[in-house]
Amino acid sequence: MQPVTIVMIEDDEGHARLIERNIRRAGVNNAIVPFRDGGSALGYLLGPDGTGEASAGRPLLILLDLNLPDMTGIDILEKVKANPHTRRSPVVVLTTTDDSQEIQRCYDLGANVYVTKPVNYEGFANAIRQLGLFLSVMQVPENP
């Protein structure tokens, strides 16, 4: 079975670094592919042709920030969950927004987990580490 690749879509370099550090601290050694904008992330996920066949057969886990410079994370979530090749990939929404309507919308669109980035670093680090722990036990299916 192919190892899971973590796709991290996060425009804030600092956040990306902190997330990565804490995932590593949790003992997760999977490859992390970072993207700082929506366009390039979609290019990777759905391939240059946009069909999603690029992701066929590879297990992916997506860490998604909602505030991106070129589009909102919601747009990416919609496309990923609408594409037959990527829709089985778990999506973890990681964002500063704790607006209840936005959380609901994300779940409605098929997000698997919604994590608010707490300013309190202990909380944030804990959340990420637990996420890492979660990743180490969860089964990520291969995309069809």
Binding site: D12, G14, H15, L18, R21, N67, T96, T97, K117, P118, V119, N120, Y121, E122, F124, A125
Partner: peptide, 16 residues
């Protein structure tokens, strides 16, 4: 919202 994002960094790297 946007002010919170840099705060996460300040707090995070302070802890680091």
């Amino acid at each position: 919202h946007d002010l919170r994002a840099p705060l996460v960094n300040i707090m995070g790297f302070t802890s680091e």
